[in-house]
């Protein structure tokens, strides 16, 4: 099993005719993902290397039965694209777009909660989701992900950072550890899916034996995760938090990664996770090694 997606997930790409949408949409298909359509207003009836393009998400869903969408459009257009997918009944929307204003994110999040509670948004500003060997939606290079081993002990990954998500996949592959699902929740202030959402799914996923979590400075998502781990998660975990050396008051690239008023520090987050029983590594490699020890101890 995997969380949020599986080998039957049918995906449309909003922005398939654009540079990023085409590059990654085709890579996702080449990985084996069922990419069944694309959406670009005004380009309905065309195709991108055999993938039919539709004018609207509603048309695409009607024609293909898609149940997931990959939003790869610029920041100005992304909020409307997410809501269009939700309105068309798409249950899982992955938005990789970087640079969406926080006010738009807050409005989209609140609109989804109020009007489309059955739609889950992953992102924005995230690398997407990969269930190795089954489905890859987003920008992750599929070859760095190790497939889950049958009857073995496999790991679920959840991360706030894109490139550190790949790093985590890579570390586990080096250790020969299979991954059930790797979810990049994104580094923006209002992510559609939180650490807690993913931890709850991994806790209930029988194929997932342990969880690797990658956080970063800013906000309180890691502290909330630590509370949830204490109350609910029984599976062993390792973690890494980026930004120990980040100066206060500076946004470290991600809109959400900022230490302000002494809050959101890496140290505070590491302390909270350790107190919740999570093994915390000083760098991504160490977090991978700690996970290898966990897996070895599970036999």
């Amino acid at each position: 099993m995997a969380i949020f997606v599986n080998e039957n997930t049918k995906v449309i790409v909003q922005g398939l005719t654009g540079g990023q949408g085409k590059f990654h949409g085709l890579r996702n298909r080449a990985y084996g993902t069922k990419v069944v359509g694309g959406v670009t207003p005004g380009k309905g009836g065309q195709d991108v290397e055999g993938i039919p393009v539709f004018d609207s998400v509603a048309d695409a869903v009607k024609a293909t039965g898609a149940d997931a969408s990959f939003v790869a459009v610029p920041p100005k257009a992304a909020p409307a694209a997410i809501l269009e997918a939700a309105a068309a009944g798409v249950g899982f929307v992955v938005c990789i777009t970087e640079g969406i204003p926080a006010q738009d994110e807050a409005r989209v999040y609140a609109t989804l909660k109020r009007d489309f509670p059955r739609t889950r948004l992953l992102g924005p500003n995230c690398p997407g989701i990969i269930s190795p060997g089954r489905c890859n939606i987003g920008i992750t290079a599929g070859e760095i992900a190790h497939k889950p081993t049958q009857g073995g002990k496999n790991v679920g990954i959840v991360s706030r950072s894109g490139t550190l998500t790949y790093q985590a996949l890579f570390e586990l592959k080096q250790q020969g550890i299979g991954v059930t699902t790797c979810v990049g929740i994104g580094g923006d202030p209002v992510p559609g899916t939180s650490f807690v959402d993913c931890l709850a799914e991994f806790q209930n996923d029988p194929e997932t034996s342990a969880i690797l979590m990658i956080g970063e400075i800013g906000g309180s998502a890691e502290e909330e995760a630590a509370e949830f781990i204490t109350s609910t998660v029984t599976k062993p975990m390792s973690a890494y938090i980026a930004g120990v050396t980040a100066p206060a008051g500076k946004k470290m690239g991600h809109a959400g990664a900022i230490v302000s008023g002494g809050k959101g520090t890496a140290q505070g987050k590491m302390d909270a996770l350790r107190a919740a029983g999570v093994k915390v590594g000083a760098n991504p490699t160490e977090a991978g090694q700690l996970m290898a020890q966990i897996i070895a101890s599970l036999g």
Binding site: S161, Q167, I214, Y240, A242, T245, A246, M252, G253, P284
Partner: peptide
Amino acid sequence: AGLAMSTLD
């Protein structure tokens, strides 16, 4: 951003 922060660390 995450990898850049991690690189600093």
